[in-house]
Write a protein that binds this DNA or RNA. Structure first.
Lengths: 144, 144
DNA sequence: TTAATTGTAACTATATTAGATACAATTAAA
DNA sequence: TTTAATTGTATCTAATATAGTTACAATTAA
């Protein structure tokens, strides 16, 4: 993975999950994440394409979850934000004069795919609701 | 993952696996990967720290596997090259005034860790020998 | 002594990511 | 109708990371 977008997107989705019913503005979300409202809106734009978030424009506008928190998994967020393989390929071209070079990528792709699927399978086991509850839990533990 | 180093390292290790007995120079490896010998030597430097490669300096020098190909897995290579988490965290600081921000990272770390372990577990199932054989196989299939 | 090689430091170029600015479009409310 | 707040998006800038290059000391076989 090249960027921190996935973690930031998960953070913002958790904010929405813990504010179900209310509308949350990109400025409020940006405050929590310590970043720019525009960045937040760009991520929300991706999440909306997967029907995970709905927004209202105009004064008193804002963002909220498109579904219940238990219906959204970390995999849904991952798929909205990240595209393609976890394992990055080299930019340059392969040397097709070399037997190994011209045959290796499909072979590695196959094994890397298995690995990536195992990872995504784990992500699908955790819902936004679980994350939300665990955050509330850990805050409570600190209070005692 | 931020870079293509892991795939390049796997490529170079496969070259060594298919040349067991012989010594292969960084220039020969770089030719196959279409890159710079210095880049190759930097990766080999990391692989040596994990006792996956041995090198000989000087004229007629070169590199070879430190073990048999069936004793080396993709996970060994991964661990030699990559350090830390697949899921990148934001550079900036979190906003500790926000309940969610100050509690979310340990919660996410836990779930991301499970996902990463699942991925690494899959990588450990594939040896360099398997990759080497599959490459020879796919070349043969093209010949027919 | 020479040529080939590794090992590594330092530098440059390129690509990616994050962050900022600007502004049109929309909408609630004064 | 006007104003203020908001999303949506394009464009630009800055920061960071990655890849690639140059240079050269150290080593070793011939």
């Amino acid at each position: 993975m090249k960027s921190s977008k996935f973690i930031v997107a998960t953070h913002l989705m958790t904010i929405l999950a813990l504010n179900q019913g209310k509308k949350v503005t990109s400025a409020e979300i940006a405050w929590s994440i310590n970043t720019n409202p525009v960045l937040v809106r760009k991520l929300i734009s991706l999440l909306k394409k997967r029907n995970l978030v709905v927004s209202e424009v105009g004064a008193d506008g804002g963002n909220k979850l498109a579904k219940k928190a238990f219906e959204i998994t970390l995999l849904d967020i991952y798929n909205a934000i990240e595209s393609g393989a976890v394992f990055q390929k080299p930019y340059g071209k392969i040397n097709i004069e070399c037997v190994i070079a011209r045959n290796i990528m499909p072979v590695l792709d196959h094994h890397f795919n298995k690995a990536q699927l195992a990872m995504l399978g784990e992500l699908s086991k955790t819902s936004l609701q679980t994350v939300s509850l665990e955050i509330i839990q850990s805050e409570k533990l600190k209070m005692r």
